[in-house]
Amino acid sequence: MDPGAAALNAIANRSKMAGLVMDFDGVLSPIIDDPSASELLPGTEEVLGSLATKLGLVALLSGRPVDFLADRAAVPGVALYGSYGLEQRTDSGVSVLPDAERWMPNVQAATAWLHEKLDGAEGIHVEDKSLAVAVHWRRAADHAAAADAINPLVQEAASLHGLRREPGKFVEELRIPVNQDKGTALHRIMDEGGLEVTAYAGDDLGDLPAFRAVSLARGHALIVDGPDMAPGVETVAGAHFDGPADFHLWLKRLDEATS
């Protein structure tokens, strides 16, 4: 059976009670050297907009801030959850979980500290992420040397400001120390939507909790493979796709199947 056929059939058969939740980077947008330049693949906006009129829920659940998602993927009918589900785009603006708001000064201080230490370092980029801060070194000429330089600084920033360190593909991220991740966020999204079937699409370590959550709910894990996949992601049970372009073709097939 071709990748994603089981998820496609399950969603199409119960479309109005089905949910499709997706990461942004590496799933709907290719991974690129400059994370600030990420954008949807051509045609994705149209297919997401069409699916949003047919399914019970279409949503993005990303480590990116909601404002970034709203700028790059503001598709009518598509719900936006940023900062690993700590933020949600609403009609009145951005809603932040109460437990997260009090940590914003810590994140801002850590972000400023990392900019001071790392701005100007060749191939290294500090990304401001609202309720998190990330340090990327994908563009560094020597990935191992860059990681060796970055890791102690990230650890020091985590200790200074009480934040939680999380690794990714050529990235170290500091998040607020609350019991929230993409798994808890996906549980909340499924419960609030009253969904009977859910599929979640992701590609990185931050997606592992969501893959576990959707599997426990007897849903479907959609893993978008790519170069330099983080250990543990390539072995997740589910439908594997050969990059965002391949996943985009699956979205188009799903759209046709729910017409």
Rank of each mutant, 00 (worst) to 15 (best):
Y84M: 15
D242F: 03
L186S: 00
G4P: 02
A110F: 01
S38Q: 09
G19N: 02
V107R: 11
G43T: 08
T198L: 14
M22S: 08
V27H: 03
H248K: 11
D99Q: 10
S130F: 08
A59I: 10
A74Q: 07
L208K: 12
N9S: 13
L208E: 04
L118G: 06
F68K: 15
R175Y: 04
G168N: 09
Q108D: 10
A18D: 01
A257E: 03
K54G: 03
G232T: 04
M104C: 06
D119C: 08
V154T: 04
T53P: 03
I176V: 15
I31C: 04
D128L: 07
A221K: 00
G19E: 01
D142S: 11
A217H: 09
L186Y: 01
K182R: 02
H187G: 09
I189N: 02
L118N: 05
H136V: 13
K117C: 10
A100Y: 08
D191C: 09
N179L: 14
W113S: 10
A201P: 14
A146V: 02
K169V: 15
A237W: 01
L249Q: 09
L249Y: 03
V78M: 07
V171N: 01
G193I: 01
K54E: 02
F211P: 00
K182F: 01
R102A: 06
I32L: 10
L153T: 06
A18F: 04
D128I: 13
S215F: 00
R89M: 09
A110T: 01
A12S: 11
D128F: 03
L80C: 06
R212Q: 10
K252A: 09
K54M: 08
R253W: 00
V214Y: 06
S29R: 08
V94A: 06
M104R: 12
S62F: 04
A217C: 07
V135W: 10
A132K: 11
A132G: 07
L57I: 11
I32M: 07
M104T: 11
E196D: 14
I223C: 05
L8P: 00
A112I: 14
A145T: 12
G19Q: 01
A100I: 06
E122I: 14
M22Y: 06
F211A: 02
S83Q: 09
E127I: 11
D207Q: 09
V75A: 04
P65E: 09
V233L: 03
H125L: 15
G243I: 00
A5H: 08
G162N: 08
I189G: 05
P231V: 06
K252N: 05
G183K: 09
V75H: 03
L55E: 07
T111Y: 13
V236S: 01
V27Q: 10
L208F: 04
W137H: 12
D204E: 11
